[in-house]
Amino acid sequence: MHQEYTVIEGDFTNAGTASSSVKKTLKQLGVAPQIVKRVVVALYEAEVNAIAHAYGGKVLVDIEADKIHMVVADKGPGIPDIAQAMQEGYSTARPEVRDMGFGAGMGLPNMQKNVDVLNVTSEVGVGTTVEMIVNFV
């Protein structure tokens, strides 16, 4: 099952739309609640990052029998040093992002904790792609 969502820069009102929809789909498919939570927390963190840091992007979700594959690809400034961005507490978030309760430098580390596979690729001045896989068993 393939799903696609569009992420718009600065559109915090709709942050979580993709995650919320994926949550409903996984629940309908009977995926275990603790797995659903890991998936949607990681995807939500990625969505918030794309809205907060980039100029918009796409969320691509593929649900298979035994796993979910998620790609959040944004057009944006990119991440010059991914290892630094993965460190808990490191953040470049703007004040308005912090006003929404985010921007504490916990997003990428929390994604890592919740998924089985995390690949972050980025090109400065072009954008960032976050690929995540969560196995259902």
């Binding site: 915090f12 009102t13 942050a15 979580g16 995650s19 919320s20 949550k23 939570k37 949607v40 927390v41 939500y44 963190e45 929404m100 309760g101 985010f102 921007g103 504490a104 916990m106 997003g107 929390n110 904790k113």
Partner: peptide, 27 residues
């Protein structure tokens, strides 16, 4: 961001009152 790291499901006490509070709780 802190709420999103919880493994358990407690009652949330917060001063942050916006749509993201509800979305975060949902996730």
């Amino acid at each position: 961001s802190d709420v999103l790291t919880l493994k358990d499901t407690p009652m949330l006490i917060t001063g942050l009152c916006n749509v993201q509070t509800i979305r975060t709780c949902d996730m």
